[in-house]
């Protein structure tokens, strides 16, 4: 009965992993990928928890995930476009708002 927990736990782990990446990775594309990981984590949690319904999975979380995927695609496309333009304007692959890791005390 609790097999949904596997998906949910996996989702939670993905979410935490993505959170860490979005927060701590410096490379801009790493951050976008991390955000996608967070998204996948939430989607897994949604689907997993939706499976607790009796008589087949709850369709609402499934619909939400479908919508969520499209939104995430849109965000990702925008992110990559900005990164590319930013790179060509500055030659940087990070936000350049903190000293490099090696120089930190």
């Amino acid at each position: 009965m609790t097999s949904y927990l596997i998906y949910v736990a996996g989702g939670a782990l993905l979410y935490a992993l993505g959170t860490y990446g979005l927060l701590a990775r410096r490379h801009l594309i790493h951050k976008v990928i991390s955000a996608n990981l967070m998204g996948s984590g939430v989607f897994l949690i949604l689907i997993g928890l939706g499976n607790r319904a009796e008589g087949g999975p709850d369709p609402v979380p499934q619909a939400m995930v479908l919508t969520g995927i499209v939104v995430t695609v849109a965000l990702t496309a925008l992110g990559l476009a900005i990164i590319k333009r930013y790179y060509s304007a500055t030659g940087l692959t990070n936000l350049d708002d903190e000293p490099p890791a090696g120089e930190r005390p």
């Binding site: 979005l22 801009l28 951050k31 976008v32 955000a35 967070m38 965000l75 925008l78 992110g79 900005i82 990164i83 930013y86 500055t90 936000l95 350049d96 708002d97």
Partner: peptide
């Protein structure tokens, strides 16, 4: 740069 930060915050 501002847009990128804003986007990550949005994400």
């Amino acid at each position: 740069r501002a847009g990128a930060r804003y986007l990550y915050a949005s994400m």
